[in-house]
Nucleic acid binder design. Structure first.
Lengths: 345, 345
DNA sequence: TTGAAAGCGCTAACAA
DNA sequence: TTGTTAGCGCTTTCAA
């Protein structure tokens, strides 16, 4: 059996078979205007529509109403388990409200981000949720802003206050992680940050430095991984271990993927965790508890993050204006097996 | 600074400022028709368009051309790490070809699947890639087929041959897993399948039974988990352990998430892996190597799966017809730490 | 309660 | 090489 292109039923087809004008069909099929049509007509129209498998053409509707009922969601890396729960949070908020989510990956590339935002703008999305955002990624964002597009930044601040921001409270999360390590007796700490041009990396990094100030006799330093990936984390930890000097007894990683790279690096060098080195991650991605050892990490409320971003966006769309507010959701430290007492020196 | 709704520039705005007719603007801005316009005009139009931040309205274009240049992708669970690489494979194939991917999650719910497919059909996607597909999910699929929509099934066969199928070679993967276990001396095997109404579960399950037939003196049985999740796998393994009778020395899981649940269950019951029980997963999701113990599993070429599904779909769109062919990509066994010699009895 | 008519922004056939 | 015209399928005034 082969599938051939059948012409899709239009509102005129329904009108003809139901013996009414297409305007009446439109009214009968839309919840907001259904009450203007007699019950008998509504019933008849619905029956015919079902028979024909009629589904209204969203492009025609959008063209007429100048609303696409679509929201563009831009994320840097779908394969990072941090993002899927956020996307589901966004969908859980938007779908019941009739919106379609257009999801786009950028692979953390500014060029792709520009292309993708242009494509979404071309589809006349009613708003954008942007979880990408290298600091100097102003072009795509500025373009969106220039044409008056509604948007919300998620998790990453693009540096300039063009749009509202919804994120986890990174600073308090890092502070909790450092306090936990301090209490375990750690005095030699390293923070392996993500690329510092990312606002989250910058925030976490300065929070780390700040938090370490209050630990007496602590030696703390920050090093930078090239990316928020397992491989980059592993490579950077390799260097920390091999470059000589005093080896840290604890590592605070910029995110869970970097932390996982740290764990791999430790294994490769015959070091134990948490015996030789304690490790704390960030985000509490799915499976963090299944790594070996189970990862102590800062939990970020991903689902809520997505829901809130969607809520803030819809508010902006409804009110017709947006203020660049900041909404920080609380984070919490989840203590598992990758942190333990500092080895005696 | 607040964002207010500015009217988006249209092709008429560009035409006016460039002192040409809008048809000329259309020609100048489309690669396929650009050669019909004088170089000077193209240059002028492009400059004006850039000045105005003009982005063509995809809804208007789609309405006119009756092509949305969008492909709908339906998946059951974005948070299952198996799917994101597939989605990226799809995007990598489609984006360079000018298509936008509309991604939709169903949470494995038939009701959501129906709603989501209707929504995508309403947006007049040029085609669908469906990685959902509970066996009796005929309604959404049948509806799509009835209106002549192009589609490809990915990984899961919906049972009826409405559309082409692209999937991994599950049977050979399971056979390799069983052969590996047999060679390690295992004779008491259990397969914890996913819901058997899923075609993949059914395929893997019968492949398991078949493969076990060739092991002399083997005792093999199949049990069913309620879902392809960690929790369902853990619960099912709990029952296997506590229900008494002879405990299996090896478990073949329906997918990696179930396998992870099995690992958790073993830990909870004070059993070691692979010392007491060997475990094999399926899919080789990201992080499978970071579990404890690192998971022996069957690798499915996810990225290629996505690329191939997109390719097959575009072929169907271009040719105007589709045959319900089946394309199986090769799988391979990845041996890690979760399998070892059977304990002596 | 229903119908008629206009128009959203674009492309493509036809004309010049 | 450029302009004119029509129309994709829908919603929304305005009229009846």
């Amino acid at each position: 059996m082969s599938v051939e292109g059948t012409r899709r039923a239009t509102i005129d087809d329904v009108a003809r078979l139901a013996n009414v004008h297409k305007a009446t069909v439109s009214r009968a099929l839309n919840a907001a205007t259904r009450h203007q049509v007699s019950a008998a007509t509504v019933e008849r129209v619905e029956r015919v529509a079902a028979e024909l498998g009629y589904v209204a053409n969203a492009m025609a509707r959008g063209l007429r109403t100048s609303s696409s009922m679509a929201i563009g969601v831009v994320i840097p890396d779908l394969t990072n388990p941090f993002f899927p729960p956020i996307v589901r949070g966004i969908e859980h908020f938007l779908q019941p409200r009739g919106y379609t989510v257009l999801l786009a990956n950028t692979d953390s590339s500014e060029a792709i981000e520009r292309a993708v935002v242009a494509s979404l703008l071309g589809r006349r999305v009613d708003g954008l949720i942007i979880a990408s955002g290298v600091k100097d990624h102003q072009s795509a964002l500025a373009e969106a802003h220039a044409v008056g597009a509604k948007a919300v930044m998620l998790n990453r601040d693009a540096g300039s206050a063009l749009y509202p921001l919804v994120a986890g409270n990174d600073a308090s999360g890092v502070a909790a992680a450092v306090a936990h390590l301090a209490q375990l007796g750690h005095r030699d700490l390293v923070h392996i940050a993500g690329p510092l041009e990312l606002s989250t990396s910058a925030t976490r990094s300065s929070a780390f430095v700040e938090a370490c100030r209050s630990i007496p006799r602590a030696r703390a330093r920050v090093v930078e991984a090239e990316a928020l990936t397992v491989e980059a984390g592993q490579r950077r930890m390799d260097r920390v271990i091999t470059e000589g000097g005093r080896r840290p007894t604890a590592v605070v990683a910029g995110n869970d993927l970097i932390a996982l790279g740290v764990l791999r690096s430790l294994r490769d060098h015959g070091l134990t965790c948490p015996g030789d080195v304690s490790v704390v991650g960030f985000n509490d991605i799915t499976f963090a508890e299944d790594f070996w050892p189970p990862l102590t990490t800062v939990r970020v409320p991903t689902h809520e993050l997505g829901m809130e971003a969607a809520r803030v966006l819809l508010e902006g769309i409804a009110s017709g204006e947006q203020e660049p507010t900041t909404l920080l959701l609380p984070t919490s430290l989840i203590v598992r097996g990758s942190t333990g007492p500092a080895a005696a020196r």
